[in-house]
């Protein structure tokens, strides 16, 4: 019972934070609302026997990714965001579609076919062990065991993916070639213009 009450409080905070992000006119406020939402999701992970993922969620999502967002917003000076679109009919249509999606997905997920296939409440307590493992379900050790045995190749692939993303971000975000060097060295700039 206590767990359910906590769940509803956290769910309310998460949904209100998401709505706050959608309706905010300041990009920095929207980012901070999203941090609240991600922290709520990390707390849900704690309640779902995933303490390792909860910590990763806070460090990677609420920490690193949101700081990256804040960096870009402040770098571009794009804090002010206007709400109104150039297409007037788009806002009511979008709201109708979103409500329809919410209702339909709730109906489908609560339908008896789906509910029967799901074990209603998991028989997992904090100290139970997952099959074939000596460690608690969802602990860092158990995740590591699965990650470095069954999912070793995908794990290596993510390393390559992160390298590609890093190189791509550097290539995309830098100035046009040579521009920065000229600006740092005004003499060379004047020489090149004299040569022109």
């Amino acid at each position: 019972m206590l767990g359910t009450i906590l769940f509803f409080i956290l769910a309310l905070i998460a949904i209100l934070a998401a709505i706050g992000m959608l309706t905010s006119t300041n990009a920095v406020h929207a980012t901070l609302f999203l941090v609240i939402n991600f922290t709520c999701i990390a707390l849900f992970y704690l309640g779902l026997n995933a303490p390792f993922l909860a910590m990763v969620q806070i460090t990677v999502y609420a920490g690193a990714i949101m700081v990256l967002f804040l960096f870009v917003i402040m770098l571009l000076g794009a804090e002010r965001v206007q709400l109104n679109s150039t297409l007037r009919w788009q806002v009511p249509l979008g709201i109708v579609l979103v409500v329809a999606l919410m209702v339909v997905s709730a109906v489908v997920l609560l339908s008896p076919e789906v509910s029967i296939s799901l074990p209603s409440v998991a028989p997992v307590a904090a100290d139970t062990q997952s099959e074939g493992s000596n460690y608690g379900f969802g602990s860092a050790q158990a995740i590591g065991e699965v990650l470095f045995n069954r999912y070793l190749l995908p794990f290596e692939m993510t390393g390559v993916l992160l390298l590609v993303a890093m190189v791509g971000a550097i290539v995309l975000a830098r100035d046009e070639a040579g521009k920065t060097i000229h600006n740092l060295n005004p003499q060379a700039d004047s020489e090149s213009s004299a040569a022109d």
Binding site: L48, A50, P119, A122, P123, V124, G138, V146, R150, Y151
Partner: peptide, 10 residues
């Protein structure tokens, strides 16, 4: 958690 399987978490 429902399926008692760590694949989802990975």
């Amino acid at each position: 958690r429902s399926m008692f399987n760590l694949d989802g978490q990975v």
